[in-house]
Computed example of a mutant assay.
Amino acid sequence: MYSVKSAVYPGSFDPFTNGHLDIVERSIRFVDTLTIAVLKNTSKKSLFSPDERVEIIQEVLKDYPQVKVQTFEGLLVDFCRAHNTRIVIRGLRAVSDFDYEHAIFLMNRKLLPDLETIFLMAASDNSFISSTIVKEVAHFGGNIADQVPAIVLERMKKVHGNHG
């Protein structure tokens, strides 16, 4: 039997934003253990390597002992099977996210019928934040200080110069 007290929050997290942090903080209200599963996605151009993302997220969440962070590649359902969990947490920023997330939900349920997905709507002040937009704004010198944790901002400054 698998534990219903654990969940997986998958994503690329490149970079980890305040929107991601909000989903983590809200998730740990109702699960005992949350594993942030950082996808090794070779088809996306990444700002940080998967190992760097794990390191950054671990630093951001160092005061959250119930959160684990690790990388994965391949199918999420295989990761869930291997980690004996059947709960997936996903954040939704807007209605436009729903179609994509619903298709993934349906495929995951087809591959692992007892997998459940819990969708958390983004808080209004985080609803516009996406890692892609944050990277783009930082690249062109815009201020992203309100969109990412301080640790992420410092790491991004090393990549993009002293913007933020």
Rank of each mutant, 00 (worst) to 15 (best):
V4I: 12
K5N: 12
G11T: 06
G11C: 06
G11D: 04
S12Q: 04
S12C: 05
P15C: 06
F16S: 00
F16H: 01
G19W: 01
E25Q: 13
R26C: 04
R26Q: 09
S27P: 06
I28N: 03
L39Q: 13
L39V: 12
S43K: 11
S43G: 00
S46L: 14
S46K: 10
F48V: 02
S49W: 01
P50L: 09
P50A: 13
D51H: 12
E52V: 07
V54G: 08
V60G: 05
V60L: 07
K62R: 10
D63I: 13
K68N: 04
V69Y: 10
T71H: 02
F72I: 02
F79R: 05
C80T: 13
H83N: 10
T85A: 03
I89K: 03
G91Y: 03
G91D: 01
R93S: 11
R93V: 14
R93C: 13
D99M: 10
E101F: 12
H102T: 09
I104N: 07
L106D: 10
N108I: 01
R109V: 10
L111R: 15
P113I: 11
D114E: 15
S124Q: 13
S124G: 11
S130T: 12
S130N: 09
T132V: 01
T132W: 05
H139D: 06
N143R: 08
N143K: 10
A145V: 09
A145C: 09
D146Y: 10
Q147G: 07
I151G: 06
L153W: 00
E154F: 00
H160N: 11
N162I: 12
